[in-house]
Design a protein around this nucleic acid. Structure first.
Lengths: 346, 346
DNA sequence: TATTAGCACTTAAAGGTTGAGAGTGCTAAC
DNA sequence: GTTAGCACTCTCAACCTTTAAGTGCTAATA
């Protein structure tokens, strides 16, 4: 696409870096002062004007310095992700601390993910997010149906990745624990090892078949099955709003409103993370690259967590596009890596 | 305490009312214009000066009108709660809608409370809060211990009020499902009907007794018991931050930060609600009356929900001290009443 | 030919001034 | 006891001015 001279690249990199560290538009003088190019401000000005023409930089107003566009950030992110420069020992230690702290929770993935978001936001001062896998990635393992209080059934569902879900069903008093055991046994033998999306399809077929048969006892049982297997799987966890509000990028009331609405909605973020779940490894979405939610000037960094080959969640950070990408990417990548390691080698 | 003339009371009431409706300090002219006292501004001025001396009103600055102090709001709240004036039919209908919508959830109290906070905030434009009862109000009903994946035990706990809690315990492979059944049976026969605080005490005694006996098998079982019964009971639900951010009272960035920190901490709010759980009926805490959290200019309205005689949660609203108390109290009271009704008559 | 110094120009942000408007307390009259 | 009148106080918005930063362009320079 664009062919940038080596010199232009270095200037662009310097501008982005400077703006990330210090939230003021970057002028040509600052570039020469903070980075040694051996060029005068006038020359830098020319280069920066070119970079603006090419869409990497923009000016808030005529007499201000330049700030990166999403494309500028993209260039920056792509160059650091190949270099992988930042890695302070302090942070390795902090992450190790996280590893130890989460060790206790390795049997409860949802709690683990929820705690992880707190660590993520505390480490980065951005919004920590995490989500457990969607129904199409969640494999059914086992179900128990326990009768209690004469007309209620507790459904206890085990997924393959160690999640336990429960709910209560209201049933007639005539259904005995024995009946329930039989239903559970049927579900266990029939569906164990399938994903919940697959199960949903099969059950749907079963029920439509049943329509023609009109056997009320079986149809009741099928209804219990359907209700028993209906759960929300991709649970979303978010923490660190108060961290993020300290950033100068969120000094504007409208931005705060927008963000808090997004957090409360969850729906949109789930959709976005769901789509990103499909990809392997660390992924960075910068500002307008995100076409699903209409969050302006927000970037997202995510990475999946695995247990062996199976994905058990996705963790990440949400912050302003003017984000310390190097650090944030480092934190997300290693957090995901640690969780994967912990779950896999246990 | 203070003896207020009937006329002063009417003026104070008018000032608070006016300030709640229009977020500007109330001047003597406004009082005479908006409320018909048959008195001139000068007279109102004298009365308002007296009210300021008595601590019911205050001036933001010399040439501004007056705004209520916490004491002023307290007077206002106490007079409306005895009168019970506001009750629009529209809101009755909305609450009825809530009632229908929640009907589906009556088997899952925690989900019900969580959904209730959304309704509360949508209705009031304040922060909806709800909390399930603490361990000293939660009665143990039944426990199931289910072995899975060779070295894991799923603990499924039923409380008296219909909550189901679960967790995973890591145990040695040598413990069989039969052993677990025995342990569960022991717990069920021994502790059913007790609150979790009582159980904690008993188990503690049991374990210290055991120390002297040094029987490893029993001590392992006791450990499983202790872990199996350890859950977080008073879960806190909050929604509506984005609603609250629309209010002029939260135009200040620092206030937003303060509030978002309080919401994320949860700890403090839980402590506060815990204390309030003890009281019956609707309760209003205005600004500095709240000595537990250091939230400034925040009021809280709560009411417990019951199922029969048993408290199953507490619901409420958090808003600025400049709050529409009449409406908010109405909403909280009726929401709590509806939930109580729904759970009791089912 | 690429680089740079110099300079006129633009703009936002900060500070100061002013006048309008709202509200008060006080005093004297009703 | 109530009220009209008035001097006084204070905030707020509008307006102006200054300052500082940064630009683009042009002409000189290496």
């Amino acid at each position: 696409m664009h062919k940038l001279s080596e010199r232009s690249k270095r200037v662009l990199y310097a501008v982005v870096q400077s703006y990330i560290n210090y939230p003021d538009p970057v002028g040509s003088r600052v570039v020469t002062k903070r980075y040694s190019f051996g060029l005068s401000p006038a020359t830098i000005r020319n280069i920066m004007a070119d970079l603006e023409d090419m869409g990497f930089l923009t000016q808030p107003h005529t007499s201000a310095g330049r700030i990166p566009t999403d494309l500028g950030y993209r260039f920056y992110v792509d160059s650091i992700s190949t270099k992988g420069d930042v890695s302070s020992n302090v942070e390795v230690e902090i992450l190790q601390g996280l590893y130890n702290r989460l060790q206790v929770l390795k049997n409860n993935i949802e709690l683990l993910l929820s705690e992880t978001t707190k660590s993520l936001s505390a480490l980065s001062h951005y919004l920590g997010v995490a989500m457990s896998p969607a129904p199409d990635l969640t494999v059914f393992s086992k179900i128990n149906l326990l009768k209690y209080q004469s007309d209620k059934v507790a459904v206890v569902l085990f997924t393959d990745d160690g999640r336990i879900k429960n709910k209560t069903l209201q049933v007639g008093p005539e259904i005995s624990q024995k009946d329930l055991n039989r239903i559970a046994q049927y579900l266990n033998s029939e569906f164990s090892g399938l994903t919940f999306d697959e199960i949903r399809v099969r059950l749907f077929n079963e029920i439509s078949k049943d329509k023609t048969r009109c056997d009320t006892l079986i149809s009741r049982a099928l209804n219990i099955c359907r209700e028993a297997l209906y759960f929300t799987f991709n649970e979303l966890f978010v923490s660190g709003l108060s961290e993020v509000l300290e950033l100068p990028d969120f000094a504007d009331l409208n931005k705060i409103r927008e963000l808090s609405r997004a957090i409360e909605d969850k729906h949109m973020i789930i959709k976005l993370l769901d789509k990103l779940s499909e990809t392997e490894g660390l992924k960075v979405i910068i500002g307008s690259e995100n076409t699903i939610t209409n969050l302006k000037d927000i970037s997202l960094i995510v990475s999946p967590c695995k247990e062996g080959d199976r994905q058990v969640g996705i963790v990440g950070l949400i912050g302003p596009t003017r984000m310390n990408y190097a650090k944030a990417m480092y934190i997300v990548e290693n957090t995901a890596r640690f969780i994967t390691k912990m779950l896999t080698e246990k």
